[in-house]
Design a protein around this nucleic acid. Structure first.
Lengths: 220, 220
DNA sequence: CCCTGACGGTTATAACTTCTAACTGAAGCG
DNA sequence: CGCTTCAGTTAGAAGTTATAACCGTCAGGG
């Protein structure tokens, strides 16, 4: 669907090959992780010989960077599609877990261990903002059931009232900002440990843990 | 301190070299991540030539495995040392963050992106149990301030009452088990995102977020 | 219609990596 | 004192990323 609207045939072919390279790269990553991604192996799978891929990607890093932004875009699109069907927070909770379990290595490409030297491209921070905007929409729509109306603002609320640049122009009260951050950090906490296999052998169901954190967010 | 109590001089020398290899490996990991760890580079730094290190480590994987269990042991020791000075949960909260910030790549070696094929050795699950035992001690000592006494057990409590094998023989009520799991998943959620740099550029203080989650655990 | 230049793909090669094999020399131990 | 074990060496195989040089083909302008 994408990469087919190009003027010249050459550009069209080029986009098509790049697409196929990405496809094989995702297959490799899904089975062996991003660190095991091999340009040579991809070239062989495509019937090409080694250096041919360098016509399409300047380096292995550039390919991985492309995959990272692909992953970001995938999450943002999935979130937006779910939000279009109703802006309830619980829907996003389920959507996030399904997206993560659908391809764990894709999740790790976004939220996993970073390489110390690596700097993410500007694109990812932009998409990250889009993702956060969807979460904020759902959090703002949620009634603040997790505190009494007259309660004093927590220290975090005070801090968030000061530093809310990350929320962009979103008109959300501090309680919604706090809920959005809790959504992000708590679900990531359970999800990343589950995907990394830290619950296997403990004999408990990660879905149960995830559901419990979901209840802590949506006011049980 | 360690690796010096060996009978024969050969064993002593061997343990000493292995120790030095680990030292250089940790330096490399701290600056470039575990994926960039190079046996050749370590050998050169030690004035040795490539294959010499294979007398001490059967493979690169074995060295990394050693480092992973080192990291687990480091966290368990740090936790136990803190617990010996008072079994309050807040102390463990601070200890965890300091340990993580002290060497982020060491944290990722334990809780970061796993390699799909890799299977952690039995040792790590044992140490993981020790770590959880320290957390459980602190959680059991904490009064359950996060719920009213007569409240019905949550779905998670019911699940934990059934599947509490991971807690070993620890005599902790389901509420303590729940608190321990929340300690683990919530603090890891904030911490891993902070270490991965997902908060940089957002203009908010990760310590503030971490403190907020800490308050949610210790009953503010 | 033809010609030229851009571009995809090739092989060769450099500089890495992990890891094995074979050899050497020295240290430990009976 | 001698034997044996073991540390360390070089050589080399099989990978990897990446560059350089070359070749053929396709696309588009004159």
């Amino acid at each position: 669907m994408a990469a087919s609207d190009a003027r010249t045939p050459r550009e069209r072919y080029r986009a098509q090959v790049r697409e196929e390279v990405r496809k094989h790269a995702w297959e490799q990553i899904a089975t062996a992780g991003a660190s095991a991604l091999s340009l040579n192996a991809i070239a062989k799978q495509m019937g090409l010989s080694g250096p041919a891929l360098y016509r399409y990607f300047a380096s292995r890093d550039e390919l991985i960077t492309e995959l990272v932004t692909d992953a970001y875009r995938s999450l943002a699109d999935t979130f937006r599609a779910r939000a279009a069907a109703g802006t309830d927070l619980a829907g996003l909770v389920d959507t996030l877990r399904r997206w993560a379990l659908d391809d764990p290595q894709r999740y790790f490409l976004v939220y996993g261990t970073p390489v110390p030297g690596y700097h993410a491209p500007q694109e990812t921070t932009r998409i990250s903002g889009e993702i956060m905007a969807v979460i904020l929409d759902a959090c703002a729509a949620e009634e603040p059931a997790d505190e009494s109306p007259g309660a004093p603002p927590s220290p975090l609320d005070a801090h968030l009232a000061e530093h809310r640049a990350w929320a962009g122009q979103h008109p959300a009260p501090p309680s919604a900002l706090r809920l959005a951050l809790a959504f992000w950090t708590r679900l990531h906490g359970v999800l990343s440990l589950e995907l990394a296999g830290h619950f296997t052998g403990m004999g408990l169901d990660p879905a149960e843990l995830y559901a419990a954190e979901a209840r802590s967010l949506t006011g049980r």
